[in-house]
């Protein structure tokens, strides 16, 4: 996925007017702690100052540039919340005077044994930032298509990158991506050691927008609806596939992809069909974004539901501990998702 982000940013520099890709360790020699920005011609390093990063992105956007800034881990974005609020409300507050075309990308969620400060989720916080659009891919092709849309959109867009999936290899190619992964690697991954004279050899990747606000139905079925995004999405697919094998039950598995605006039509149509819904994410459970979806399901589909609708989410805890026992028992895993799905299916209507 990290290569897909890089290819999207490269495409953005060449075709969508990206002027600045910046953040802590984003420029050479490292090209980002996850290497998402290696070899990009407009990438540069900033002081270790998240408020400066967000503020500068706003200034660049005001002055007609097209910035993509990175908060190294969303865990370190909390001290920028008021700037994010201002970025989201400035157009509204200014009576429509200004556009603020900026992209903020940041790795989010658990799954890299990151302990307290490399495991936070951000989407529930982000969903409260009116004026922003928030997207979260769960595979490389979506990361590419959502990043292009984030860049092309003239509003602030936050791209949450699931940390656990950044090394994931996709099963679909980006248009123009070489089919051989080793070839791609040799073209765009910086060598270990001295990189001072290295230059990437970019493949001729093509335009591919995934419109903001469009979900993807990754499995179709009639028995129940599962809505997820980010790290937990592939786990939901796995769980649905294994239950299908065992019991023949089939699921609509919806990858939301956009947290805001979310694709209500897709969720609504599916619930109407199945009458059973499980929403899965890994953010903490009190005032969780999934609760908002649940509320709408109840408000608008109460009489379509055949069993109690539910949300599976992270535990309300101060953090995720380093010993794997903590992480395994704090945020949804394959086993807990499978159990939740099986329960959803087995409850009598």
């Amino acid at each position: 996925m990290v290569q897909a982000v890089r290819l999207a940013l490269h495409y953005g520099e060449e075709n969508l007017g990206v002027t600045d890709v910046f953040g802590e360790d984003v420029g050479p020699p490292l090209g980002g702690v996850f290497t998402a920005t290696q070899g990009l011609k407009t990438a540069w390093n900033t002081p270790l100052d998240e408020r400066g990063i967000v503020g500068t992105a706003m200034g660049i956007a005001y002055a007609g540039g097209r910035p993509v800034c990175e908060i190294q881990f969303c865990d370190y974005g909390f001290n920028t919340i008021d700037l994010l609020k201002v970025a989201g409300n400035q157009r509204w507050a200014g009576g429509g005077g200004w556009e603020l075309p900026l992209v903020l990308m940041t790795p989010s969620g658990s799954g890299i044994r990151g302990s307290l400060y490399h495991s936070h989720s951000f989407e529930s916080w982000a969903s409260r930032l009116a004026g922003w659009k928030i997207v979260m891919p769960s595979n490389p092709l979506d990361a590419y298509g959502l990043m292009l849309s984030a860049i092309a959109d003239p509003n602030p867009v936050m791209v949450l990158l699931p940390k656990a999936l950044l090394r994931l290899k996709g099963d679909k190619l980006i248009p123009g991506e070489p089919a051989d992964p080793d070839k791609l690697k040799s073209m765009i991954d910086a060598p270990v050691g001295d990189r001072s004279r290295w230059k990437p050899n970019w493949p001729d990747v093509k335009e591919f927008f995934i419109p903001i606000g469009t979900a993807s139905v990754v499995r179709e079925g009639d028995s129940a609806t599962v809505v997820s995004y980010g790290r937990t999405l592939p786990l939901c697919v796995q769980a649905a596939d294994s239950i299908r094998k065992q019991s023949g039950a089939t699921f609509d598995v919806i990858d939301l992809r956009s947290i805001f605006p979310y694709d209500w039509k897709a969720v609504s149509a599916s619930v109407e069909k199945t009458g059973r819904i499980l929403i899965v994410n890994e953010d903490t459970e009190v005032t969780n974004f999934g609760e908002h979806l649940l509320r709408r399901v109840i408000d608008e589909h109460f009489y379509d539901l055949v069993v109690r609708p539910r949300v599976l989410f992270g535990r309300h805890l101060p953090g995720i501990g380093l010993n794997p026992v903590y992480e395994q028992n704090s945020v949804p895993q394959l086993a807990s998702i499978t159990t939740a799905l099986a329960d959803l299916m087995s409850e009598e209507a």
Partner: peptide, 22 residues
């Protein structure tokens, strides 16, 4: 003239951005 915000001092975090483009 970029929008004035009631949040004290945030404009100082944005100023380097406009200057960078300038």
């Amino acid at each position: 003239v970029v929008p004035v915000s009631s949040v004290i001092e945030v404009q100082f975090a944005m100023a380097p951005g406009t200057a960078l483009v300038q």
